[in-house]
């Protein structure tokens, strides 16, 4: 009897633990390790251990790429926040019955192929695309605008793909917000703006941080978006990493760039937990957000 319980427990816990250790925990350690190794044409990487790869990221050329990439991702994040916050507020103000419907409509595209949707944007922004066609047709312009292969296109694409990741955490944070706090603040003489700044924003700060985390980090890695919408010049960090791994085959250098992402993830998680503790609710992204 006892042993059958034991066996079930053993497999239930063991399988996932081993899997995640072997393919999530251990590999992440290997990335960090690889970033300190030396490139080797024969064996991909080899000893000695050094920090050369990190020193090389400080090269002006790479700093420029890093900065451009970070700026585009940050702008996408800010834009998502600016659109996503009012959007989430609008959802929360709907009758309870309608809220899940709108939320579902927002997440639905997340489950579809984002490459295909990026391709659809390319289709719309191109010189022969719908926007240019329409503007030309209306006689507002006489030659097509260069929309595609610009930083603007990349940022737009990132926002388009990642907006649901911003809206969801914001929505669940706003949904938990106690309406009575607003009534109380109103009663104490706070106007709509000061209620927003002093109550809504601080109390939804975990949602804001979570949303930013879930937009910014993927945004830095989505190489196919910059590839399809940004052309050869507007690169994301993901493009650099991909080139180092699949073309130049300089794994230590590529890993060093990835470590930057891991560190950023760690930092934003720390921010998130701090914000959650500030709101004095138990930390952890809610699974039902997805």
């Amino acid at each position: 009897m006892k042993s059958s319980v034991g066996q079930f427990r053993f497999w239930a816990i063991g399988l996932a633990s081993v899997w995640l250790t072997l393919f999530v925990f251990f590999p992440n350690l290997l990335v960090i390790l690889t970033s300190f190794l030396t490139r080797d044409p024969q064996a991909t990487v080899s000893l000695p251990i050094n920090a050369d790869s990190y020193v090389r990221t400080l090269d002006l050329l790479y700093l420029q790429v890093l900065w451009d990439s970070l700026r585009m991702s940050l702008l996408a994040m800010v834009f998502c926040l600016v659109v996503g916050y009012p959007f989430a507020m609008a959802i929360v103000s709907l009758p309870k019955r309608w809220q899940p419907v709108i939320v579902f409509l927002v997440i639905l595209p997340f489950w579809t192929n984002s490459l295909v949707r990026t391709y659809a944007i390319q289709f719309i922004l191109g010189n022969q695309g719908i926007i240019n066609k329409a503007l030309l047709g209306l006689g507002l312009i006489d030659k097509p605008l260069q929309l595609l292969y610009t930083q603007f296109a990349v940022i737009l694409g990132l926002c388009y793909i990642l907006l649901p990741f911003m809206v969801l955490p914001l929505y669940s944070a706003l949904e938990k917000l106690d309406v009575r706090l607003h009534h109380a603040a109103k009663d104490l003489g706070a106007g709509p703006l000061s209620r927003f700044w002093h109550i809504t924003v601080p109390l939804t700060s975990p949602g804001i941080v979570a949303g930013c985390l879930m937009v910014l980090l993927p945004a830095m890695g989505m190489f196919y978006i910059s590839d399809l919408l940004g052309g050869a010049k507007n690169l994301l960090l993901g493009n650099v990493i991909k080139t180092q791994f699949l073309h130049t085959r300089d794994w230590p250098f590529g890993s060093a760039f990835s470590v930057i992402l891991i560190v950023l993830l760690g930092f934003m998680l720390w921010l998130y937990f701090r914000a959650s503790r500030f709101v004095s609710k138990q930390g952890g992204l809610n699974g039902s957000d997805f």
């Binding site: 996932a16 633990s17 995640l20 250790t21 072997l22 393919f23 999530v24 925990f25 251990f26 590999p27 992440n28 290997l30 990335v31 690889t34 985390l213 879930m214 980090l217 993927p218 830095m220 890695g221 989505m222 190489f223 960090l237 993901g238 990493i241 991909k242 791994f245 794994w251 590529g254 890993s255 990835s258 992402l261 891991i262 993830l265 998680l269 952890g284 992204l285």
Partner: peptide
């Protein structure tokens, strides 16, 4: 680990798997 693997950027997961 479940939590972190959900939040890890895909690109990082991709290269870490390649290395492993």
């Amino acid at each position: 680990m479940v939590f972190v693997s959900m939040l890890t950027p895909e690109i990082v997961m991709a290269i870490s798997l390649l290395i492993v």
